[in-house]
């Protein structure tokens, strides 16, 4: 399992371009969309500046982006022989699935480490509490792991890269919009609100916003509980679907 994390780190060591290019989109959200919309002041954010309000959402969106496309790696490894070789390795297949997901969490963390300094530059006001910060990182890590598991599930259904690209996009953007990332859920039509409550991103954004921006962590425990339930469910499904990828 740790071997997979090490693999990711070693890959990143040799080629860091991906981290930088992947940071462009979230930085655009913050620097362009966020800055412009903060002048509109039409969205009730409980007194938090709008730019600060959307930072956690953008942060999470960009990290789950990394995770969801991690399945692409699995598809690629299926086309090459790596996946086959991993299956024949004297290690548990579940450990392989979990190791893969966790490794993608590591990649996601690097994403965070790039976006936060940029957000600071633009003028986002973070709470400087190391404990809060670490908890936020942990939550991001957990959520990315869950989404990586979803992506393994998708990979088992979509066996080609092209299909995967399409479905990956079709998942991330709706999740991003139907959550409290850009605006409070209260503003949505009732039907969408229901969806938002089933969206794990909502809970993650809520927790990270509390920890990094507003300091309001009353909902932290239920948020974490929701994320853990989501993770466990996704890991279980991904482990089962993994055997499908093979054939």
């Amino acid at each position: 399992m740790f071997a997979m994390i090490e693999l990711e780190l070693r890959r990143l060591k040799h080629d860091r371009t991906e981290i930088y290019t992947r940071a462009i989109q979230p930085i655009l959200w913050l620097a362009v969309y966020g800055t412009v919309m903060s002048h509109v002041k039409a969205i009730p954010t409980d007194g938090i500046p709008y730019l600060d309000y959307i930072t956690p959402g953008v942060l999470l969106q960009s990290t789950i982006f990394v995770s969801v496309f991690y399945g692409l790696t699995i598809v690629w490894e299926r086309e090459t022989g790596i996946l086959k070789k991993l299956l024949v390795a004297p290690a548990s297949r579940y450990a392989t699935v979990i190791g893969r997901s966790v490794a993608s969490g590591v990649r996601a963390i690097f994403q965070v480490l790039i976006i936060i300094p940029v957000a600071l530059l633009i003028g986002v006001d973070f709470i400087f509490n190391p404990l809060y910060f670490l908890t936020a990182i942990l939550i991001i890590f957990l959520v990315s792991g869950g989404f990586a598991a979803i992506s393994i599930l998708i990979a088992s259904l979509m066996k080609t890269r092209e299909r995967f690209m399409g479905i990956g996009q079709a998942i991330i953007m709706p999740l991003f919009f139907v959550s409290n990332s850009l605006y409070p859920i209260k503003l949505m039509p009732t039907v969408l609100q229901y969806f938002a409550y089933f969206n794990p991103l909502t809970y993650a954004v809520d927790a990270v916003r509390g920890l990094l921006i507003s300091g309001d962590i009353r909902n932290l425990l239920p948020d974490i509980a929701a994320i853990v339930i989501f993770d466990v469910a996704m890991f279980a499904v991904a482990s089962i679907s993994f055997s499908k990828i093979i054939e």
Partner: peptide, 21 residues
């Protein structure tokens, strides 16, 4: 099909596989 990672070195490939094994 090819079953090594091309974006790391040969030694690193063996190291990762050794750990997986």
């Amino acid at each position: 099909e090819m079953s090594v990672w091309t974006d790391i070195s040969g030694y690193e490939n063996l190291l990762i596989y050794a750990k997986i094994y």
